[in-house]
Design a protein around this nucleic acid. Structure first.
Length: 556
RNA sequence: UGGGGCGUAGCCAAGUGGUAAGGCAUCGGGUUUUGAUCCCGUGUACCGCAGGUUCGAAUCCUGCCGCCCCAGCCA
């Protein structure tokens, strides 16, 4: 990290705390609940928490906030660990669970009762809701609020012992039923749940609530800065209240920042889960999903994601960032790192009428235009080639400088060809082009100083490898699907199109999960989940021709 | 209508009394055997609005408006 890096308000606070000597070391935590997959919103939190610690030589815990058994599962913890690692962060031996602290938490709850600031309530869930009041009206005290300490201790012990059914009793903090902050109206501390815990086994039938468990877990781990999102801002008084009452050795500070939202994407675990459950997508790792697993499978490099959150910044303002900003980060990193290859997505046959029937030449193609370290590869060239349908236009506008009847174009790393004849089927569709090549224009021979305006990509028919290519588009048609009542109404029906493509031979050996650039088309990642030659389009290349076309259409 | 938070260009975002950084996008132009990349250039931002304080305010004060969050025994 260099000193000119912009400092967000959280890093400023941290710098100050280090300078003042308040803390000798920064300790943070990333605390996911294992009840779903991590998504782009979490990337921000992961990068922030692990980032500030790493930048200051501190440490970060990966702590599973597993206080609600029944909603959580090991499938998710496994996925979360994989995702955080993949993003580029390491928690070392600091993998913990809120459930690791259940014993201490239980003792702390007893301490609260002994101090007279917690009580066992025996109202029903519905009654508690009624007693809570509303946003504008104060709540009223539960009739059980003034139970004696001994009675509370006894009842809580029996809750622990399993003498009561779910919902029969509830341990609550005794704060203020009239507080304008709803979180302070005697919040729940422990509830009864006769469910075994995925990590703690069947030892417990009472489980602590988030507000109680989280702050104390932070304290137990010596977390200095507990960074979370804005919706927890009005929980902070409660976070501090527990610390004030219990006076743990370490005193963490909660700081909130705004969530990161991406346009045309959903980041609600509930809705993401619905997409999976309803089969709208193929799973949590469907390449259209804004999950880390989905983006990984799509082919987004972790560096791109990290760069993206840096650009997004850390503030308290609600953000809805353009999808293009993320895609641009992906393009930038892949532009440097992805080897170039050629592939034809929508094949149109070209026959070079003056090219010897059985001749095959080997063309040398650069693997990267700007970086010689990528080396070169060989591409077979023959009489019959596939080119992109979009690279031919019968009635081409002036500015279209690809192939047109009578026109010339350069075949990348090959020859200049001229279109002599257009062959159509009975429906009038163009099915084949008869062209002639200029033998003096072979790439790299020094005789190829002739200039033509356009260069297109190609694949030799008899050497081509078949593949299925998935072209992805945004999942929603609305910029902020989070805000739409029913997201089903704004699903993009064309978010996935699959085409049969022809690839240059070298692509046959590409390893699963590898990403290359199909020249002039975009970046494509060999799918790492499904078997066979399947490629996912990561992102298209910038396309100023498409832009021109769009403008022309709008003017017409 | 209770409490908390936020409002600087299309999207992000610096700036905390001295006269509006930067990134992305946009729009021009140059280079280019990817219409990619790269390189140059390009923005009058009513600093949410209205008053006030001040020689001077995005920055201080007052009032107003808009958006987000909170009434789970979820996190």
């Amino acid at each position: 990290m260099n000193d000119s890096e912009p400092r967000d308000f959280i890093r400023k606070i941290i710098d100050e705390d280090l300078e003042s000597g308040k803390h000798a070391e920064i300790v943070t935590r990333f605390p996911p609940e294992p009840n779903g997959y991590l998504h782009i919103g979490h990337v921000m939190s992961i990068c922030l928490n692990f980032g500030v610690a790493a930048e200051t030589g501190g440490r970060t815990y990966l702590r599973f906030d597993d206080t609600n058994p029944g909603k959580e599962s090991p499938e998710y913890v496994e996925a979360i660990e994989k995702d955080v690692h993949w993003l580029g962060f390491d928690w070392g031996d600091r993998l913990t669970h809120a459930s690791d602290y259940f014993d201490r938490l239980y003792q702390s709850a007893i301490e609260l009762i002994e101090k007279g600031v917690a009580y066992v309530d025996s109202l029903s869930a519905e009654e508690i809701r009624e007693y809570r009041g509303t946003l504008t009206e104060p709540g009223k005290d539960s009739p059980y609020r003034d139970r004696s300490i001994d009675e509370n201790l006894d009842l809580f012990a029996r809750m622990y012992a399993g003498e009561f059914a779910d919902g029969e009793h509830l341990l609550r903090a005794k704060i203020d039923m009239a507080s304008p902050n709803m979180n302070l109206r005697d919040p729940a501390i422990y509830r009864i749940r006769h469910i075994p815990h995925q990590n703690a086994g069947d030892k417990w039938c009472i489980y602590p609530m988030y507000d109680f468990a989280h702050g104390l877990s932070d304290a137990y781990e010596g977390i200095t800065h507990s960074l979370c999102t804005l919706e927890f801002e009005d929980h902070r008084p409660l976070y501090d209240w527990f610390l004030d009452q219990l006076q743990p050795e370490h005193r963490p500070r909660q700081i909130e920042f705004s969530r990161l939202n991406i346009a045309y994407a959903i980041t609600s675990k509930r809705k993401l889960n619905a997409l999976v459950e309803e089969g709208v997508v193929s799973g949590w790792d469907d390449p259209r999903m804004p999950t880390i697993a989905g983006m990984r499978r799509r082919g987004y490099p972790p560096e791109a994601l990290r760069e993206f959150v840096v650009r997004a910044g850390v503030t308290k303002k609600d953000k809805l960032i353009e999808m293009g900003a993320l895609e641009n980060c992906v393009r930038e990193t892949l532009g440097d790192s992805a080897p170039r290859r050629m592939a034809v997505l929508r094949p149109l046959k070209v026959v070079l009428t003056n090219y010897p029937e059985d001749q095959v030449e080997v063309m040398e193609a650069k693997n990267h235009p700007g970086n010689p370290d990528f080396g070169t590869r060989e591409m077979p060239f023959s009489r019959e080639l596939w080119i992109e349908q979009d690279d031919f236009m019968e009635d081409a506008p002036r500015k279209f400088f690809r192939l047109k009847p009578g026109g010339e174009v350069r075949l990348r790393f090959g020859y200049i060809i001229r279109c002599d004849e257009v062959i159509k089927n009975d429906d009038g569709d163009v099915v084949e082009l008869r062209c002639s090549y200029d033998p003096d224009t072979r790439s790299g021979t020094g005789t190829s100083d002739r200039k033509v305006k356009g260069t297109i990509h190609w694949v030799s028919c008899k050497h081509a490898v078949d593949a299925s290519v998935r072209l992805y588009d945004r999942l929603f048609t609305e910029a902020n699907p989070n805000a739409v009542e029913d997201f089903h109404s704004v699903l993009n029906p064309d978010s996935l199109e699959t085409v049969s493509a022809r690839l240059e031979p070298s692509l046959g050996e590409l390893a699963a999960g590898e990403t290359v650039q199909f020249e002039r088309l975009g970046y494509f990642c060999k799918d790492a989940v499904d078997d066979g030659a399947i490629f996912n389009r990561v992102v298209t290349l910038r396309d100023s021709w498409a832009k021109l076309e769009k403008q022309a259409l709008q003017q017409a």
